[in-house]
Design a binder for these strands. Sequence first.
DNA 1: AATATTTTTAATCATTTGATTAAATAAGTT
DNA 2: AACTTATTTAATCAAATGATTAAAAATATT
Lengths: 210, 210
Amino acid sequence: MSEKPDIEKNESTEEKIKEAARIVFTRKGYAATRTRDIAEESGYNLALINYYFRSKEKLYDIIMLEHLQTFLHSIMDILNDADTTLYQKIEVLVGHYIDMLIKNPALPLFIINAVNADPDKLITGIGADKIHQEDLVIIKQWKEVAAAKKLAIHPVHILMNMVSLTIFPFMGSPLIRNRTKLSIEEFNALMLERKKLIPIWIKAILNAEV
Amino acid sequence: MSEKPDIEKNESTEEKIKEAARIVFTRKGYAATRTRDIAEESGYNLALINYYFRSKEKLYDIIMLEHLQTFLHSIMDILNDADTTLYQKIEVLVGHYIDMLIKNPALPLFIINAVNADPDKLITGIGADKIHQEDLVIIKQWKEVAAAKKLAIHPVHILMNMVSLTIFPFMGSPLIRNRTKLSIEEFNALMLERKKLIPIWIKAILNAEV
DNA sequence: AATATTTTTAATCATTTGATTAAATAAGTT
DNA sequence: AACTTATTTAATCAAATGATTAAAAATATT
């Protein structure tokens, strides 16, 4: 009936198990990971995983929410920065995400699979449902730009374009790298180029005749 | 030691099992599907699945290759059509894929997960390793356009952009639809808009000052 | 040092799960 | 009809898997 033990005391082992879980869950997904895989990866006994985290699912939920936080980290600050223009925000966002994805290239697939498996858990888990989109600075700025340009296309197109151009190449990377015979370093160099290119492309898209 | 029984005679049951497998594998992925799920979905006994397909993995391989063929169906003809310009090819490709993805929105995630789990199986499975990219009409046309425009960016960027803009919105659809409160019909209408928009955007990207 | 508490392990359980077997039913052939 | 082959099922197996337990080892407290 006891709750999980003090976290502070033994950050090392608990953190090692979480690190192992992060590696295995991220690589193989929830269903394909065996609790034993995590035990082996961590170097600890199988029972330790349950001693610290009660169950595979609870451990997974923790990893999932941490990944989600990595994914969403600091973007609210960017979206709500009153001191940058819309275009600057795009530059910062794209740059931020490409840097992050080079460090964590498996994140998008993990998160999309998590959404797919249980949309509500993930969406309410992070409190994304509490955000009032109307209040965000970037939305207001977008409306100004859209009005000035008399844009006839749905704003969600632009958002999808930004996200697609930034994230998808990382999801497709195994296939892309196989077909193009690019090394990881060469691939990452291309992704870094995209930090400058995507904002330019978005601008071009916004100005394109429709 | 016997091979699988005659297919012709009982297309109905075998095809029903495959159809059930398609549904369950596509929705839940390989690891999360139980052979019993497929049995239940098909309405037949568990042993039938093994009677017809020997094992869960063999059945999965069949479904995977069929999905891959759906995904790649007829694109070689498009890529090699000497009677269309590069820009026309882009229009045809994007249109083709968006139509296909509206019918099979779960395909991209399934295929990307399959590549992730075992890249070689899938890539050699379809014979993609035998294609000589240099020989494709679209590649020659691309080189002409790139030379004329004196493009300094790596051609794979353009390819990634096309694929990203077309496919990613379908993978992100559960999240996009949740956040935007769009119905499936509204979402699909947006995707149909993209059949015209993406080629225009690609053109704008090609002409963008870098 | 003696005692209590926390951490770790080995052994084991109970289910789940992929697969098989043997028998029953249906269909085809003579 | 008698016989053979193909299809389908119920029952069962063996291995895998998530989880628990009881005890050992390590650490902290008195």
